[in-house]
């Protein structure tokens, strides 16, 4: 009997900023609770703040204080990303036998687009060993949001972005969302994310701010039928909820069941497909492997071999089939 397959996505489980044994145990606890709640596709999120990727020029370095200069020299982005991928591989091996499928994701906080430099080129370069499955953007100001809309030219990096998120625990400082900008963004296939975990948090009235902010986002996206996705963003396992509980939250926000069923099911998987096609194919024309959504160890379990990204099939079995008896003929009437 075939297994009855179902699908539930949570595309935002934050990776701890400081890598400790305590924090990693917390992450594992979250993943175990996700299995209990019948989740299947989960992305682990690495967040990059502007301080982490900003490389100032010589003139700008002279104006900075010595404390900031020390912090700049101490932090190394490459080493930080390497530790992330190393921990991710360990997690993948631990949850190999379970139903959970793990994906990598990065969110880049944008305050000023001029500070970005070449970070998107470095993250998405095809020559890099490890590439992120999903790339998201978190605008902190109106300039950051304009980065998505302005760069429509050929040299823009905005085509390589899957998800747009916001900081729901605080007020959007300094910018107001409009129909026109959001329509332009979502037409290209970029999905808008809603994080529900801050509704359970009472600190700084963040539960009230969540309602205000999410209402504003849903209004701009025309109720978000084809654009919005929902994920947790939970730092502790108590903030996670199952499918029915999430539906009740969205019902409370004033959405109808036909709308939020799409938000939970079809929209997140299409954003995952967009990300995986970017990694595994050339501009969505020709892809390698038997399935884009499968990871390398999963393909190897089905009897294929993966060498340097190519999927190799050994044809020894096919020759045997030819030697077998030809199919019995049926008389044509």
């Amino acid at each position: 009997m075939a297994k009855s397959q179902h699908m539930q996505c949570d595309l935002n489980i934050p990776f701890p900023k400081i890598v400790n044994k305590e924090n990693l145990d917390k992450l594992e606890l979250i993943l175990h609770t996700l299995i209990e709640l019948n989740y299947t596709h989960v992305a682990i999120n690495k967040q990059l703040s502007p301080k982490m990727y900003y490389t100032p020029s010589k003139k700008q370095k002279q104006q900075m204080t010595p404390k900031d200069l020390q912090n700049l020299e101490e932090y190394d982005l490459k080493a930080d990303l390497e530790t992330y991928f190393k921990q991710f591989e360990i997690l993948e091996q631990k949850f190999k036998s379970k139903q959970l499928k793990l994906f990598t994701r990065v969110t880049v906080e944008i305050d000023d687009p001029n500070q970005l430099g070449s970070i998107f080129i470095n993250l998405n370069s095809p020559s890099a060993k490890n590439r992120f499955d999903l790339v998201a953007i978190l605008p902190l100001s109106e300039k950051g949001l304009a980065f998505l809309t302005n760069n429509n030219g050929s040299g823009s990096n905005s085509t390589s972005i899957d998800i747009l998120t916001f900081d729901y625990a605080n007020y959007f400082n300094g910018f107001h969302l409009k129909h026109k900008t959001m329509n332009g963004i979502t037409r290209r296939g970029i999905k808008v994310e809603i994080l529900y975990s801050s509704i359970f948090n009472n600190l700084n009235q963040s539960n009230l701010k969540f309602i205000n902010n999410s209402k504003q986002v849903i209004r701009c996206c025309r109720k978000g039928i084809k654009t919005c996705i929902i994920s947790s963003g939970a730092t502790q396992n108590i903030y996670l909820r199952g499918k029915i509980a999430i539906e009740s939250i969205l019902d409370f926000l004033g959405l109808k069941p036909d709308v939020y069923s799409r938000m939970l099911k079809e929209n997140p998987i299409s954003s995952l497909l967009n990300g995986r096609l970017r990694v595994k194919s050339y501009q969505q024309t020709i892809a390698t492997g038997i399935d884009v959504m499968m990871k390398d160890p999963e393909i190897e379990r089905e009897g294929y071999e993966v060498v340097n990204g190519f999927v190799v099939k050994s044809n020894i079995e096919e020759n045997l089939e030819d030697k077998l008896e030809p199919p019995t003929k049926k008389l044509k009437k």
Binding site: Q5, S160, G189, L277
Partner: peptide
């Protein structure tokens, strides 16, 4: 010059059993 597009017409790529349940 090929370009990435919106994937809303590629939904058949995903396993159909996922979406039905």
């Amino acid at each position: 010059k090929f370009k990435n597009k919106n994937v809303k017409d590629l939904m058949y790529y995903i396993n159909a059993e996922y979406l039905s349940s």
